Simulated scan of single mutants.
Amino acid sequence: MAYFISDTCISCGACEPECPVSCISAGDDKYVIDENICIECGACNSVCPVEAPNPE
């Protein structure tokens, strides 16, 4: 079950460099996770100040 970034994302960018497989990128109004690449490690969630990344 891949992670996704909820609408609570504040676009701070803290999650992007933490992803070991580089599946997070800036979207139009929030960061997005490529679910085909996500390995479900949770590294993004552990650094997010608003806990926007969540498992689907």
Rank of each mutant, 00 (worst) to 15 (best):
A2M: 00
A2K: 09
A2Y: 07
Y3K: 02
Y3I: 00
Y3P: 04
F4G: 01
F4T: 05
F4Y: 14
I5D: 08
I5W: 02
S6P: 11
D7T: 13
T8H: 13
T8F: 13
T8L: 12
T8N: 12
T8A: 14
C9Y: 00
C9I: 00
C9T: 04
C9V: 09
I10A: 15
I10P: 15
I10V: 15
S11A: 15
S11Y: 05
C12W: 00
C12A: 12
G13K: 09
G13R: 01
G13C: 05
A14F: 14
A14N: 14
C15N: 06
C15Q: 03
E16V: 01
E16S: 12
E16C: 06
E16Y: 15
P17V: 00
E18L: 03
E18Y: 06
C19E: 12
C19L: 07
C19P: 08
C19H: 02
P20Q: 13
P20H: 12
P20N: 15
V21N: 01
V21S: 01
V21M: 00
S22D: 08
S22H: 08
S22G: 09
S22V: 00
S22N: 10
C23N: 04
C23H: 05
I24Q: 09
I24R: 04
I24Y: 01
I24D: 06
I24G: 12
I24A: 05
I24M: 03
S25A: 15
A26D: 12
A26P: 12
A26L: 13
A26W: 15
G27L: 10
G27P: 02
G27D: 09
G27E: 10
D28M: 11
D28P: 05
D28F: 13
D29I: 04
D29N: 13
K30S: 10
K30P: 08
Y31K: 06
Y31P: 10
Y31E: 09
V32S: 09
V32W: 02
I33K: 03
I33F: 08
I33E: 01
I33N: 07
D34K: 15
D34C: 14
E35L: 00
E35V: 10
E35N: 05
E35H: 01
N36H: 06
N36M: 14
N36E: 15
I37V: 13
I37K: 04
I37Q: 06
C38A: 02
C38D: 07
I39C: 05
I39P: 08
I39H: 06
E40R: 02
E40Q: 07
C41V: 07
A43T: 08
A43N: 07
A43L: 11
C44W: 10
C44H: 03
C44Q: 05
C44P: 04
N45L: 07
N45H: 10
N45Y: 07
N45S: 14
N45I: 06
S46Y: 11
S46L: 05
V47M: 01
V47S: 03
C48M: 01
C48A: 03
C48R: 03
P49W: 00
P49T: 01
P49Y: 02
P49E: 11
P49D: 06
